[in-house]
Design a protein around this nucleic acid. Sequence first.
RNA 1: GCGGAAGUGGUGAAAUGGCAAACACACUAGCCUUAGGAGCUAGCGCCGCAAGGCUUGGGGGUUCAAGUCCCCCCUUCCGCACCA
Length: 833
Amino acid sequence: MAEDKEIRYDPATIEPKWQERWAADPTLYAADPVTSGKPKYYVLEMLPYPSGQLHIGHVRNYSIGDALARHMWMRGYNVLHPMGWDAFGLPAENAALKNHTPPREWTLSNIAGMKRQFQRLGMGFDWATEVTTCLPDYYRWNQWFFLRMYERGLAYRKKSKVNWCPECATVLANEQVIDGRCWRHEDTLVEQRDLVQWFFRITAYAQELLEGLDKLDGWPEKVRTMQRNWIGRSAGTEVEFGVENRSEKIRVFTTRVDTIFGATSVQLAPEHSLVASLTAENPGLKVQVAKLLEEQKSAREAGDVGAIDKHGVPTGHFAINPYSGELVPIWVANYVLSDYGTGAIMSVPGHDERDFEFATKYAIPVRRVIAPADPAAEEPELPFLSEDGVLINSGEFTGLTCEAAQSKLQQIAAEKGFGEAKVTFRLKDWGVSRQRYWGTPIPMIHCERDGIVPVPDDQLPVLLPAQVEITQQGGSPLGRVPEFVNVACPKCGGPARRETDTMDTFVDSSWYFYRYTDAKNSTAPFDPAIAKYWFPIDQYIGGVEHAILHLIYSRFWTRVMRDLGLITNDEPARRLFTQGMVIKDGAKMSKSKGNVVSPDDMVGRYGADSTRMYALFAAPPDRDLDWQEDGVAGVSRFLGRVYRLVMKYAPLARTATTAAIDAPAGLSLKLLRKLHQTIAKITLDFEGRWHFNTCVAAIMELVNEIQAVDAQLAAGEVPAPVMRELLTNLVLMLAPFAPYIAAELWEELGGEGAVLRAPWPISNPDLAREDEIEIPVQINGKLVTVVRAPTGSAADVIEAAALAEPKIQSRIAGKMLVKVIVVPGKTVNLVVK
RNA sequence: GCGGAAGUGGUGAAAUGGCAAACACACUAGCCUUAGGAGCUAGCGCCGCAAGGCUUGGGGGUUCAAGUCCCCCCUUCCGCACCA
């Protein structure tokens, strides 16, 4: 190809040129109005935190979403593909401490830089709908929602034990505590503090959030399972035990009320409200209980509550079994959790593993009250855990099955008023107060006279004060700004104080995707009619690390908005895709390991197209991807081949009219066949399988096949219309993956308008069909040879061809042909003996 | 312990019950030369000169046919975990 030498693929020239042209056309990536007759498609990637730099994982995430968005545009959909910034949060305050830059400036300048990176990568976002969560025109609606939730009792204040990260100097939600440590500081143990905090009543939606998961069949099973576990529904019974010689009662929660005749003790959590009074007259006991509490706390901090050594102390008091009247000792035990169920359990050592272990240790009686359903079965060893059994030693309930006993016992408890059927959730209300500066101010006022008074709607937004000294001392930074704190009570006009806590940043990301649909609305969070058109999101794409936090909060928020009458959908996203991580040398990238790949560096050396396309080519999108720079270079070389090929034959292709090609044959047919097979494959993949790595491979195969016959092409063996068909479709298929080179070559081929809005090619099945195929021939399931037969040949024709093969003949000679299996188009298998 | 995913060449991987290793990377040999982060040709799972044989973590099974479906086991990763 000596004559090709002057044609060189130079992304450093092509890409900035197109970037400039695209920037000059704000309508290019804009969605049509809701009145457009086109079907809608809302594709969304999770918005980034503006840390200052896009990392390579972002490049992968957004390359997937952008390829899909571009494909859907080409398919003629009305596509919404927006982008924004999850811009509140602690790092801005840390940067402020370190560099004395105000959080707002730091954040906005990071956003500007990352936006440039997005644009350099050629991501097709509609920047006209950009959402920046730290700006008042966004966060005022957080406040507005807060007020609506307050009105409905969904936002409330309570004093509670909260998770406190000393490093963040703030409260963490349960979801932000991982193994007893802060989600942002893996070396920092989370402390428990008593604080009055604002909560969102997510538990009011626990059942609905759980049930909704069954219908989310477009979500990965893994995410649904994680959410199910997190919500942790458990159906059982609450039963009240009396306390001997006292008026107090102890409520226990159990899933196995059928075993209650086997309860030989009642165990209280060290923090149970009754513990203080039961130990009041016994100082020695108090000390022991304190020790149990300490053990529980340190186990929690070590992140290994499950491995705690079971300890307990008897209180000397007795509980009264409400069914049998039996007196059983009341203990305090370190393995009973105060924040699950009622903080008290009945201990049934005969039929519960933990209770058995505990009872064995302290010589508490073990009693068998359940026998296997099958009377012939051997007497099982204790603890016998199966629920497939019948009650024994259980008074009037003896003989009932476990299941029947549970409902009977529940019924009696309800009738007599000492218990009821009860569903318990592991999910807790969402603590949203943060003692930080860089977040949405909670729109509440504390008045000496009127108590808690919501900020009236017409006084929103409650603006974050600009000048705040950020320090590491505890307490809310806003508390140190008198102009902010001191305010007149909206009710009485008297002196009052503003709430100085700000909202958890997960509030911001719980509803941002609705704002995209109507981002400039200054009188409402969004127009319900527009949201109704776009929602639910058709495809949401992000990392699996958000499986619990963001994805459960936003499902909750969607239901709250639905109940406020703002939207009609129950779920925010129909389909969710969680892409794999990008790793390097088999390990997660981190600065300390020095294996961080910089997107800027990649784009600088190989161009955006090569970087993006490699991110899609190196692995299927749902799997972890080990970044190998040689691979990027390889993709870059491939794009160079495409570039030279198209540039070389574009002049010929341009001479063709758009008239249809009639009856192609020979080489033309061969190439067109490959083309149409490739179109079919890629189109199918976009419809759900999403193996973009094999899509890129298919394009490579097509290019390889065309290139292999370069000499014949150069000799003019393939006419201009065929060349035109080949090259334009090649460029169209490349467009979702490598938008710059596609735009450049589209123009070179004389394509009309933007390649992004050119129609996606349609595979012609007649052209794609091979007229002769190879069929493997097996003997007893082992491959022996391959025969060629015309496509669609009948089974007997294929069988005859197979039997005619000399290789087959010689192998079956003298043997008995038991059976011949012919799967037309697939295989022939001869079973011989 | 419970739940989920995965295990295929030197590497990333492909194969939706029907020819295992497509497409790339790396490597080897050669060509070209305006010496380029270039291009072209050929080779590249393992054993074997070859003919041929063997090969998808291990074991069993279903099937005419299994990387793919079923059962058991091993390993790795992820999530949850005294949740009563």
